[in-house]
């Protein structure tokens, strides 16, 4: 059911960068991204050599270990018309750190032209919701999801990517949804990658506040553009037997009328 009327810029050949953790732990997120994009009439490809953007290494201080992954990403995706990534934090790493990392790689030798290639590729790299709202100019993607849902704005999406109201606009257009605002939506959930392990006590305290806010909304579902935050929030919701589930935004947008609830 392509929604040609809503589409801008014709049929796009979209290269999906699933990210290492979505690939391994959250395949449903990737399937949903594919379902949404194909429903809108676009073609999805999955460059098979992709692994990881290097975020965990770069953000934990292992920059040298992250550097080869920059070259790898560029080799896998340089050809793409658009790269879609269902993870704000990975997109942030690519946008904010790849330029200087590429320069460093080039200076070390053996990667001639990498800076230029990163520079050329970056305008075609999108976070999933950003691709829908900013690249395609869409709000309604034909989804149906009859649940009470609250949206957690991950910090990278909110501040680094400036997703703004984009994800909420997408959710508002979903049929059957009851969207409730999460209080203190701009406050970090306390995930922070290796922070959650290295500073487990503080991360846990931040998480406790976030879980309280989520519970106070009365939502059945907490969604976000990042499964990393959701893994963290969902882990606590499960530990505390709250019955509240976490799902990636893509899974809500992929759902259609007639899907099993």
């Amino acid at each position: 059911m392509p929604r040609h009327a809503l589409r801008l810029g014709g049929i796009l050949q979209v290269a999906l960068f699933i990210t290492c953790y979505n690939d391994t732990l959250f395949p449903e997120c990737g399937k949903s991204v594919v379902r949404v994009l194909e429903r809108l009439g676009h073609t999805v490809e999955f460059p098979a050599g992709q692994t990881c953007c290097g975020q965990m290494h770069a953000n934990t201080g292992y920059r040298d270990e992250a550097l080869p992954l920059v070259a790898r990403f560029v080799e896998q995706f340089a050809h793409a018309e658009a790269v879609v990534i269902p993870s704000s934090s990975c997109v942030t790493t690519i946008r904010e750190q790849y330029p200087s990392m590429a320069t460093e790689l080039e200076e070390r030798g053996g990667h001639a032209g990498l800076s230029r290639a990163v520079h050329d590729l970056l305008p075609r790299v999108f976070e999933f919701s950003e691709f829908l709202t900013k690249r395609l100019g869409l709000a309604d993607v034909g989804a149906y999801y009859p649940h009470r849902v609250t949206y957690h704005a991950s910090c990278h999406g909110l501040r680094a990517l400036g997703l703004g109201d984009g994800p909420v606009d997408l959710l508002r257009a979903v049929g059957g949804i009851e969207l409730v605002t999460l209080p203190n939506v701009e406050r970090c959930c306390g995930f922070g990658g290796t922070f959650a392990v290295k500073n487990a006590a503080v991360s846990g305290a931040m998480l406790a506040e976030k879980v309280r806010d989520v519970q106070n909304t009365g939502a059945e579902i907490c969604c976000a553009c990042d499964n990393s935050c959701l893994m963290h929030i969902g882990g606590a919701l499960h530990r505390q037997s709250t019955g509240i589930r976490t799902v990636h935004l893509a899974e809500i947008l992929a759902a259609e009328e007639g899907d099993p609830v």
Partner: peptide, 11 residues
């Protein structure tokens, strides 16, 4: 540290 306050869904 992860499982001190949260569960982890298996792969």
């Amino acid at each position: 540290g992860w499982t001190s306050v949260r569960d982890l869904k298996a792969m």
